[in-house]
Nucleic acid binder design. Structure first.
Length: 537
DNA sequence: AGGGTACCCGTA
DNA sequence: AACATACGGGTGCCCT
């Protein structure tokens, strides 16, 4: 770890991104370079990058350029943008400094990171991750434009039908995309139902959970909901994907075949340590509804390659079990039990075989809710229990899993005392106690965020470590990282190596963190993201 | 015309 | 008074 601190202080290579390429500063000289320079003077750059510490501000784009021209990557980097976020994760878009300020910023960040004991997170997780994100972004993912065009036509046809039915039922055309107009038509003109949730502006809300109450009785409501789903798919996914994917005539993707989309993974976009994905966001492609999940059918593996999706099973609950040391929960995971069923069995004091689907469903809600700091009111609302039942359920849960209860209480105490939370690997999230303490609502909001930051953040640490382990061990020519979706990694693997690659990836992922609970990874493979099948040895 | 916000909804 | 975390992004609508 010493290399970042010891590296020459005046002779580092300082780089800032710029529209034209990259600004470079060395030995107090400033000059501007573009991609051409990297391409033409490959040998010279490799020597420089090998010898110097490369200090920059969001170096991912530079690394993409180096990869493009097959220039060996720098031996050591220090990314000031990523470092600033690691030190204070509420900073998501740090201001780009002047190039002359960079040496000073670099030195103060090194000091800051050391003082906050964030060296491991920054140097062993975040910095090694940068070239992997660069790799995933340049790889992109194949998109079948013809498939999407067909889907689009189907949707437009269905939407037109729904539109007609809705106008007929309401008496006159209006803008179905306007929540205000939908509210007026349904609730004032047609006087559907009563009560219900109100928006800030006093209108009755037309959100899905409100309209769902009437969808069986009122065909117009069902049609509005269906129309919304169609428009959402069209405008949020289908059209942007067509727009953002490489098409004929544009420079072809480096893998040929279908046009590819290249998302941007924002490494500093969250307060918990997760990544985010934008333009397009490939971390929120539909999967739950059957119709929406059809979108995934448009994502195609490269010719000669197959998708392999690796999904950590129940990782957040496992983290909670391991960090809290809850004996009962740990044992359940060790035995590979259905954890929601197991929880239900405990809460209801019935054997596993006697757990009904409803009991399991409620246990699942509380298991997830715990991770968010859910209270009894929300528990009641989301399970249909009365407030009283929910309270009883809640108390029962915590008496069945006393160490989880104690751990959560301790986490809440700690954040109020320290002003920050810490993941298993030392990632920190800071809170401003001055503005929070003394206000009951803000305090419990902070407590919820604190519990979640520890679990979600540890999850993020583990997945990032797994990505690094895979990248360090396996051949990225045959095993291409494509997407990270929080607790899931999507690779495309050359067909002739897939059977040997899968167990290796599995074992690297399952070994990314060793604690009281064994991590396990579910694997699916297929030529389309939409039709992956469970992988059997 | 462009910025800011409300509301809605997709994912983990 | 609020009472379930973390995101990105679409349209509507009000503002300048």
């Amino acid at each position: 770890m010493g290399m970042w601190e010891d590296a020459g202080k005046q002779d580092n290579l300082y780089l800032l991104p710029n529209d034209g390429g990259h600004l470079v500063l060395g030995k107090s000289r400033v000059w501007e370079i573009g991609e051409e320079s990297f391409k033409k003077e490959k040998a010279r750059w490799e020597k420089i990058l090998e010898e110097k510490l490369v200090v920059g501000f969001f170096l991912k784009d530079l690394i993409k350029i180096l990869k493009k021209y097959r220039i060996a990557l720098p031996k050591t980097i220090f990314d000031c943008g990523v470092a600033m976020w690691t030190a204070a994760s509420s900073i998501k878009t740090p201001e780009l400094p002047q190039i002359g300020e960079l040496p000073k910023i670099y030195l103060s960040l090194v000091k800051n990171i050391k003082e906050k004991q964030l060296e491991k997170i920054l140097y062993e997780i975040e910095f090694p991750l940068i070239p992997i994100l660069a790799e995933m972004e340049s790889n992109g993912i194949g998109v079948d434009g013809k498939f999407l065009e067909k889907f689009k036509k189907e949707i437009l046809g269905k939407a037109a039908e729904l539109e007609n039915k809705i106008y007929k039922a309401s008496g006159a055309p209006f803008n179905i995309n306007s929540p205000a107009q939908v509210s007026e038509i349904l609730f004032e003109k047609l006087k559907i139902g009563g009560g219900g949730r109100r928006t800030k502006t006093g209108r009755r809300s037309t959100r899905e959970s409100e309209l769902a109450k009437f969808k069986d009785k009122e065909p117009i409501v069902r049609n509005v909901l269906d129309y919304r789903e169609l428009m959402k798919l069209l405008t949020t996914y289908i059209e942007p994907l067509l727009e953002l994917s490489e098409k004929d005539g544009s420079p072809r993707s480096r893998f040929g075949g279908a046009g590819r989309v290249h998302t941007t993974f924002n490494q500093t976009g969250t307060v918990t340590g997760r990544l985010s994905s934008e333009n397009p966001n490939l971390q929120n492609i539909p999967i739950r509804s059957e119709f929406g999940a059809k979108i995934r059918g448009a994502f195609a593996a490269s010719t000669g390659f197959t998708f392999a999706a690796f999904d950590y099973s129940q990782i957040e609950l496992k983290i909670l079990a391991a960090l809290s040391g809850d004996a009962k929960m740990i044992e359940a995971f060790k035995r590979g039990l259905d954890i929601h069923k197991f929880t239900a069995s405990n809460i209801n004091n019935v054997p596993m075989e006697k757990v009904t689907p409803e009991m399991r469903g409620r246990a699942k809600t509380i298991n997830f809710g715990i991770v968010f700091g859910m209270g009894t009111r929300q528990l009641a609302r989301s399970t249909g229990m009365t407030l009283e039942e929910a309270g009883k359920f809640y108390r029962e849960y915590f008496s069945d899993f006393p160490q989880i209860s104690a751990y959560i209480n301790k986490a809440k105490e700690d954040v109020k005392k320290n002003g920050f939370t810490q993941t298993l690997f030392g990632r920190k999230r800071f809170f401003n106690l001055d503005t929070v303490l003394g206000d009951d609502f803000l305090e419990s909001e902070m407590e919820r965020m604190a519990v979640n930051a520890i679990i979600q953040g540890t999850d993020a640490d583990i997945v990032k470590k797994a990505m690094i382990a895979v990248a360090d061990t396996l051949d990225s020519k045959k095993i291409r990282p494509i997407l990270q979706i929080h607790d899931e990694l999507l690779y495309e693997i050359e067909d002739d190596t897939i059977r040997e690659a899968i167990p290796r990836i599995r074992s690297l992922m399952e070994g990314a963190c060793q604690f009281a609970v064994p991590l396990s990874v579910d694997i699916k493979i297929g030529k389309r993201w939409g039709s992956l099948k469970i992988y059997a040895e």
